[in-house]
Nucleic acid binder design. Structure first.
Lengths: 192, 192
DNA sequence: GTCTATAAGATGATAGAC
DNA sequence: GTCTATCATCTTATAGAC
């Protein structure tokens, strides 16, 4: 480590994550990143040979954090409807607390311009969330505190996409109110 | 006009629209555009002084087309529920028929990196669609063929964001099936 | 209207010194 | 590990000839 505190790798990851969440993949550069953490662009290449490697690492780390958070929700002793509310909060937190888009939401929009292994990780993030939501929804339907028609996986895919859309709309208008309203509206239609 | 048929301005607009819908704002350049229509980048600057001007013109043209299409829907002699189905088709068409994202959906994700007048036009597109949807939803609620809780404008904002999210998810997975399923699922919860 | 020429700066990377 | 130096290439323009 040379500048500031902490190790360089973590500082690269944290700063790059913030940049990608706010600017997307194509509008951020190693230079921007290096400038902020006060190292040289070449030093970033020591940790990540190229931009795609960094992107992939960021999405994987982001995905793992969400997996951990979903695991925490699983251990809560509350109704499915309550878990769903908390899950919406989880997805919303990055925007509400830090003014950032969902990392995988921004990257999804840029999908066709990303290195293929980065898109693959983004898809993995989507699928992991959809799968978890499908289980939650089905479980809520069984216990009677959630209601929806058709296959749980289709409901889950639709709901997750809708939540990402709500984030994108809130992002475009810089509006917490929009995100809150949309989140509540989407969940309300699932409650019995 | 010099190359191919038609006038250069229209060819610039059509090609740039396609590029922006598939790559977004930051991953397309005047060079890419000029190469496709076989003119020089400098010639593009004759029509649009800078990239932001082109972006703004594209969003305005896109918005107008949607306005016209919504007007057509308004003149149909069908139920609100049926109009809603057709509106979902309208939003889906660009993806289903041409494999493109919604122009304003991609740009929304890049909002923080766009020239301010481009973001403004994107917001205008959102608001126009939300406003139209709010009227449709309220009208459907009155006539009894649509059902939802709360203010129509909030439902409309949530629904529009959800549809844009469905497009983004379909875009990420290159999947018509995802878009169809999500569209139907969202609308189904509104039908009585 | 379209071109050539050109500019200043950004970008993604690499080689090799320290 | 971090740096300097350097790279080829791209990007967003502008000036001015044709």
């Amino acid at each position: 480590m040379s500048a500031k505190d902490g190790n360089t790798l973590d500082r690269i990851l944290d700063t790059a994550e913030s940049l990608m969440q706010t600017r997307g993949y194509n509008a951020f550069s190693f230079r921007d990143l290096a400038k902020i953490i006060e190292i040289k662009p070449a030093s970033v290449h020591y940790y990540f040979q190229n931009k795609g490697d960094l992107g992939k690492a960021l999405v994987m780390r982001y995905s793992k954090r969400f997996e951990t958070a979903r695991d925490c929700l699983d251990r809560l002793n509350v109704t499915s409807a309550e878990k769903l509310d908390r899950y919406v909060d989880l997805l919303s937190d990055g925007f509400q607390l830090k003014g950032r888009m969902c990392l995988c939401g921004v990257l999804a929009a840029e999908a066709s311009t990303l290195p293929s292994d980065v898109v693959e990780e983004v898809r993995t993030f989507f699928v992991a969330n959809e799968t978890w939501l499908a289980t939650l929804l089905e479980s809520g339907r069984q216990s009677g505190d959630l209601r929806f028609e058709g296959a749980a996986i289709e409901a889950a895919q639709s709901l997750f996409a809708a939540l990402e859309g709500a984030l994108m709309s809130a992002w475009t208008f810089s509006s917490n109110a929009r995100l809150n309203a949309a989140g509540k509206w989407l969940v309300a239609s699932l409650k019995t």
